[in-house]
Nucleic acid binder design. Sequence first.
DNA 1: CTCTTCTGTGTAAGTAATACACAGAACTAG
DNA 2: CTAGTTCTGTGTATTACTTACACAGAAGAG
Lengths: 279, 279
Amino acid sequence: MADEDDEGGEGGEGGGTGLPASLEMAWGLRERPGKGPRPTLTLPRIVETAVTLAAGEGMDAVSMGRVAKELGVSTMSLYRYVTAKEELYILMSDAGVGAPPALPPEADGWGWRELLSQWAFDQRAVLMANPWILRIPITGAPVSPNQLAWMERGLAALADTGLGEGEKISTIILIGGLVRNEATMAADMMDAIVKSGVSPDQVLGQYVRTLRLMTGPDTHPAVTRLLESDAFTGSDEPDFQFRFGLNRILDGLATRVASGRTDGDPGPGPGPGPRPGGV
Amino acid sequence: MADEDDEGGEGGEGGGTGLPASLEMAWGLRERPGKGPRPTLTLPRIVETAVTLAAGEGMDAVSMGRVAKELGVSTMSLYRYVTAKEELYILMSDAGVGAPPALPPEADGWGWRELLSQWAFDQRAVLMANPWILRIPITGAPVSPNQLAWMERGLAALADTGLGEGEKISTIILIGGLVRNEATMAADMMDAIVKSGVSPDQVLGQYVRTLRLMTGPDTHPAVTRLLESDAFTGSDEPDFQFRFGLNRILDGLATRVASGRTDGDPGPGPGPGPRPGGV
DNA sequence: CTCTTCTGTGTAAGTAATACACAGAACTAG
DNA sequence: CTAGTTCTGTGTATTACTTACACAGAAGAG
C-alpha cells in the first residue's frame, strides 16, 4: 500500500480547487479540451448508470466492472472519467440526494424550528427513497454541489436564531447525523427482513427472544425492563424513534436560543461540574 | 419458531439463540466438544490478534489471510472458529469497546443527566482510543456481551426519569449515534491529517479555501457567512461540537422529563401542525 | 482397536481494483 | 494537406481478498 507522492493528495491540475477532476466537472468548471477523439461517455451518464444499478440491485452490485458492462464499455474506460471508485461513489451520492426540494408556500411565516424540522424530514425522505446512499461510507467533509446545497438550506434555517456560526454548523451536523443514523437503522432492518423473508415483527421478535436468553434481571435489570415492556411490540408509530430524537434536539435548541447564549461554552463535560472525562 | 430446516440464515445448532457459534462462545455458552484433535487456536487469541493488527495498522490491514499469517496458521483454519469475516468483526468490536468502566465513587448522588453524560463521554473515550472500531460497519442490533453491557449502563442511567421504555431506548440510540458520529468525524480528520502529512489547521484551511471557490454570497449566503466567521479557525475548544450536541440533547431531554410526559407522542412532524412530510 | 468427530490445510474458484502501454481518433499548427 | 499533439477506449496483467471443498491426520468414545 504505497502512499501518494507528496502534493497533498488530491488531483493535480484544474481550477486549483484541490478537488479531483470529476468533481470540478460536477461543479461545471473545466470543460472538455477539444483535442482528442470525442468521448463515448459522459460523467453524468456513468453516474446515472451506477445510480440505477444501485437502486435496482443495491450498492454491492456497483463495481467498476459491472457499471462498465452496463454501459457497454470496458472496465478501464471508466478510469478516463473518474480516478478511483470512491470518486464515483461521491458523485453517486450527490446525484442520489439531489437538490433540496422547494419549500412549501406557507413556509414564509415559519420560524427556525419549523424550517429545520422540514429540512430533517426532507432529508430523511430522500434517504429512505434511495437507501443505497446509506451504504456509501462518508469519507470527508461535503464538497459536491447538492451536498452543499443541503448544507446551505440547513444553515439558512438557523439564520435568525442568534446562534453563533460554530453553533449553527454543529447543529446541522448533529441533525444530519441523526437523520442518517435513523435512516440507516431502518434500512438495516429492511435488509434483514428481505434477507430472512419474514415480517418486521418477526425480526424484532427474534431479537427480543435472543436478548432474553442472554440477559436477566440480575445482570441486566434495565434491559430486562425494556424487554418486558411493549417498546418492541407496539409498532403503532413507525417514526417514533426519529421524531422523538429530532424533537428532543429541537427542544434543547429552543432552550439555547431562548437563553440568548452564543458560542462560548457548549455546556459541561461529564459528571457534575468540570471533571476530566472518564476511562 | 422451534422447527426449521431451512432455518432463516443464522447458525445451525447450539443454544437455540439464533446466534452464530462464535458469538455463543463469547457468551460462554457452548463448550468445546472433547472429540477431535485439540485446537491450536482459541477464539480469544484470534480476536486479540486481529485487534492488535487493527490497532497497529488500521482496519484495512485486517484480512483473513493477514490475521492467519500473524498467528502462524493457514488462512482457512480461521474458518473453523468463525463462519465469516463479518463475524470476526463483531467479535473485534466487542473486544474493542470492552466492558463499561466503573463509575467514580461520587457518582452515587448523580442524577440521570450526569450519569448519561458520563456514559457518553466514556463511550467516546473508548472510540477515540480505538478508532479502528469506527471502521467496522454496524450490521445489526447489538448482541455481543460488552455491547449489551454498555446498553444496560445507558438504560440504567435513565431508570428514574419516568420516561417510557420506548423513550429510553430511543434516547440511548440517539446519544449512541451522536457519540459514534462525532468520533467518526474526528477519526476521518485524523486520517486526512496523517495521509496528507499536514496539520489539522491546514486541512481545515484547505477545506475552507475549496468551499470559498465553489460558493458565494449569491448562491450560498449562509455558507458564506459560516466561512467568513471564525468557526473553522478558532480551534480553542476541540470538543466543542461533541459537547454542544450532547448538551443540546440533554437539555431537550430535561424538558421532556420535567414535563412528565411518557411514551405517546414523540412530538410533531415537519412544519407547523400535523402535515405529511415533504419531498 | 475401530469409529467417529473434529482439526488444520492446500487448492482453487470467483470477484475486485487498478497500473500500464498501445492503437487510433480528432484537433491544431504549419 | 501534413505532422504533431493530445486524448480516447481497450486488453493485459498484477495484486489482494473471501470462501467452498475435500483430504489427512489427531483425539477421544465404544
